[in-house]
């Protein structure tokens, strides 16, 4: 392995830094000295894991894998395509078994690294390309989003609901298509507004978009954002504080506790569970050549009501959503979605 050779060279030509290197070996666990049968898992994100959403879920998954499977873990936040390559190479060449690359932006770099390092397995969240050792991990958030749409249809009084998105990539568009289908399943007359701000984390743009939809009469707002989701909740809260009735719907993770006064429920990806399941799948040799789907069947995708506001939800709604969830699991509901994985068929 190249790094081991490199280390030797390093010792020889740079005696000055030997002290530091000695500290390194003591300090960071000496990756090359560990037994090779320990599972080694790395995570790449292109945003901060403190976002209480998409990236945080991935980091929780990494920690869960560490706890449940005794894996040694590492995380790097990367910004540019050049860095993606570099991080894949660094992890693959130091013997990591699985690299979770949490976003479709990693897919080209993942394919390149996969070719160069056949022994590593790369899982690209929301990715669209497949190779022998690179698999997309597709979250069927449409299923939760469909249920959220039904909930929104029951809660709206103005018969107008809104959707505020970040970047209009296929997975994001898919959640909105499904949300709209869920709304119409309850009441085909309800008007559905849609806007993409072009940025997952632009708080100002998200708030502006939400305020615009509220002023057009929407009283339930769903989002598909990262850090900017707080702005959606804040905008809804300001309307509520003025004495109006309005709700937000959480997305990606269980955000009910983030704004318990305005969120009626959340369409949830239990990313951590999905990661753990994926790691277990790898251990059983089941990854390769195909996309991995996470859906309501494994309870990785779900819709959960906010217990604080539960008393405002009509009993009919709770009942109908529960039965629909069962029907989705049974494969009896045709949820529209946006296809983006190479060679993906209409099945699951």
């Amino acid at each position: 392995m190249q790094l081991v050779n490199g280390r030797r060279l390093h010792w020889r030509i740079r005696p000055v830094v030997t002290l530091l290197v000695a500290g390194l070996v003591a300090g960071c666990g000496g990756e090359s000295g560990e037994p090779s049968d320990t599972l080694r898992v790395a995570l790449l994100t292109s945003g901060p894991v403190s976002d209480a959403g998409w990236y945080a879920g991935a980091y929780d998954g990494l920690l869960l894998i560490e706890d449940s499977l005794g894996a040694s873990i590492s995380h790097q936040q990367t910004a540019t395509p050049a860095e993606f390559d570099e991080a894949f190479i660094a992890y693959a060449s130091s013997g990591y078994d699985i690299i979770f690359a949490h976003g479709n932006e990693y897919q080209d770099a993942a394919i390149r690294a996969g070719e160069q390092f056949p022994d590593v397995t790369i899982v690209v969240s929301g990715g669209g390309r497949i190779s022998e050792n690179v698999a997309p991990l597709i979250f069927r958030l449409e299923e939760g989003s469909y249920l959220a749409g039904m909930a929104a249809a029951y809660m709206t009084e103005s018969k107008v609901v809104g959707m505020v998105g970040g970047v209009a990539i296929p997975p994001a568009r898919g959640t909105f298509v499904a949300f709209e289908a869920g709304v119409r399943a309850v009441d085909p007359e309800i008007e559905v507004l849609e806007v993409f701000t072009g940025d997952w984390n632009d708080v100002a743009a998200a708030k502006e978009a939400t305020v615009a939809q509220l002023s057009r009469g929407a009283d339930v707002i769903i989002h598909n954002l990262d850090a900017a989701s707080f702005a959606v909740f804040q905008a809804v809260r300001e309307v509520v504080d003025e004495g109006n009735v309005a709700y937000a719907v959480g997305m990606n993770s269980d955000q009910n506790a983030v704004a318990p006064d305005v969120i009626i429920g959340s369409a949830v990806i239990r990313i951590a569970d999905a990661f753990l399941a994926t790691a277990r799948l790898w251990q059983s040799g089941g990854i390769g050549g195909a996309a991995i789907y996470a859906n309501t069947e494994q309870d990785v995708i779900d819709f959960v009501f906010n217990p604080v506001l539960m008393d405002r939800v009509p009993a009919e709604a709770i009942e109908r959503i529960a039965s629909t969830k069962a029907a989705i699991r049974a494969g009896d509901v045709d949820i529209p979605r946006v296809v983006f994985v190479e060679g993906e068929d209409e099945g699951r």
Partner: peptide, 26 residues
């Protein structure tokens, strides 16, 4: 650990010929 941090920084940039060429120079 600042020592580990410093060591990682050195190793990740000039730790080996390949690191230096393939990462730092790139």
């Amino acid at each position: 650990d600042p020592v580990a941090a410093g060591a990682a920084m050195l190793r990740g940039s000039v730790g080996s010929w390949n690191t230096f060429v393939s990462i730092t120079l790139v």
